[in-house]
């Protein structure tokens, strides 16, 4: 088994109202060093071993997990724990 870790983030230049609100809250708490926050998504996929795993995950990201119009994605493939 493999453990795939997918990170999805908003593209540069795409407004992130949620990130702005989080940044505002952090600043309110006194963390004035925080100049920008971008909120993204993190997914873990447990998948069967497959020679094409990288290409397949890429297709999954483009078709469903991320929206290429507004989001970027990156992923890593690690050894998964056999359950």
């Amino acid at each position: 088994m493999k453990l795939v870790k997918v990170h999805i983030t908003l593209k540069e230049g795409v407004l992130d109202p949620q990130g702005k609100a989080v940044q505002g809250s952090l600043n309110t708490l006194g963390y004035n060093n925080v100049k920008e926050v971008r909120v993204g998504k993190y997914l873990e996929l447990t998948v069967n071993d497959d020679a094409n795993i990288e290409a397949e995950i890429e297709a999954m990201c483009n078709k469903l997990l991320a929206n290429p119009v507004i989001e970027n994605y990156k992923f890593t493939v690690e050894e998964g724990v056999v359950q």
């Binding site: 407004l15 949620q18 609100a21 929206n67 507004i70």
Partner: peptide
């Protein structure tokens, strides 16, 4: 249709 939706700017 082209484009995508983001959260409303006032959340």
């Amino acid at each position: 249709l082209p484009g995508a939706m983001l959260r409303n700017k006032n959340l």
